[in-house]
Design a protein around this nucleic acid. Structure first.
Lengths: 149, 149
DNA sequence: TATTGTTATACTCTATAACTATA
DNA sequence: TATAGTTATAGAGTATAACAATA
């Protein structure tokens, strides 16, 4: 869209779609985050998995897949790797022998904590474009939108 | 992470990573947006393309690819479709006959406007989880983060 | 019969390199 | 030589269905 002012035609930038804004920010964030995770030998989904398990062990792989919004069939190969690397442990649930519980090993906890520390530092730099009081407000708003009742 | 309070152990939910929050919101947004776009016969990238062209015609396909953050090789098939559907026009630049300019047709403008109207309505519903004064603040903050100087 | 974990398969998306025509 | 557009191909990511073990 353009508008004529003082005999010249200049482009007017309208409000962007929410999706466009978030996509831009996500790309910035991912571009900064990928090398950090790579340095810790983790993929994005591996980190998401460790994060979920750090907060709460999984009662089954299916529950874990749902918790992080990942496909249960793809989770298998991912857990295979994490188990092979000694970051997680899978154990049959005695109560329901179909299910496997998943939890972090001490190495898994340490790896997650180390990666998270680096990511938090990066986030602080990224948010430095905003005044300090807005940073907390933003986090609160995003949390509300991410977890609708 | 857990903490013991009054002889019981309850999980403590720490602040989520910014990436996790944004990913959740993005998924919500995309889940709502996909059916709307499909109703208008547009893919996500097709909509992004129309949005960019609605604001400003492209001096070349390469410039368009960069503007929307899409791969120039994949853009070609997308533009082929949009052109076939009569939504855009490609024209050789007389000044540089290697380049092709890209602009919307009237049909393209109409299709974009119709899709955008639906998407804006959806965004308003999604943001209704926030008090009105926070909605504007959020948009301002996201715009700042999406366009760093 | 339904569910968990698993495997296999097909499909889409994405990244890379190479080719042409213009500059 | 460098750039815009294009094509082809290989790789990663994703979705679907089917199977064995257990409930």
């Amino acid at each position: 869209m353009c508008v004529s002012i003082c005999h010249s035609t200049i482009p007017v930038v309208e409000d962007e779609d929410l999706g466009a804004l978030l996509a831009r920010i996500m790309r910035r964030l991912m571009d900064a985050e990928h090398p950090l995770l790579r340095a810790h030998g983790l993929s994005m989904w591996a980190y998401a998995t460790l994060t979920s398990l750090a907060e709460q062990p999984a009662t089954s792989q299916l529950a874990l897949a749902k918790a992080i919004g990942y496909d249960k069939t793809r989770l298998i190969a991912l857990l295979d790797e994490l188990e092979h690397d000694g970051l997680i442990v899978r154990e049959r649930d005695p109560a329901d022998r179909r299910a496997q519980t998943v939890r972090l090993t001490p190495e898994g906890e340490a790896r997650h904590a180390a990666a998270k520390a680096d990511i938090r530092k990066m986030e602080i730099e990224l948010l430095a474009d905003l005044p300090p009081d807005e940073q907390g407000a933003l986090r609160a708003m995003l949390t509300k939108l991410a977890h609708p009742e």
